[in-house]
Amino acid sequence: MQIVKKAQAGSFESSDIMVLVEPSEKPGRYIEIDSSVDIQFGEQIEYAINRKLDELQVIDIHLIAKDKGALNLTICARVETAVKRAAGVQKGFIP
């Protein structure tokens, strides 16, 4: 999937993750993670994000994640929504 504009998904609430994505200036994936559980789960969060991006076939992306202890499935859901919004294939949201 091709990232064509900036988009975000998620919130700052506890057990959630805020994901911001935008087209990257240089080719490749640029992932910045800031997590309240970074020491324990930082690598796992990055792994989860990368696998989701693989699945969505995203090659070039700048992704910023502000995590507040989200579970794996939440992380994947937020990444997927943000990427789809940024690729222009997802519209609206389910509150």
């Binding site: 900036k6 975000q8 919130s11 700052f12 609430e13 506890s14 805020m18 911001l20």
Partner: peptide, 19 residues
């Protein structure tokens, strides 16, 4: 969760337009 709800919503709104 009111505080984070407000801040999330405002940040979303601002980031639609600004970097």
């Amino acid at each position: 969760t009111a505080f984070s709800l407000i801040v999330t919503s405002l940040a979303n709104k601002a980031l639609e337009k600004y970097k």
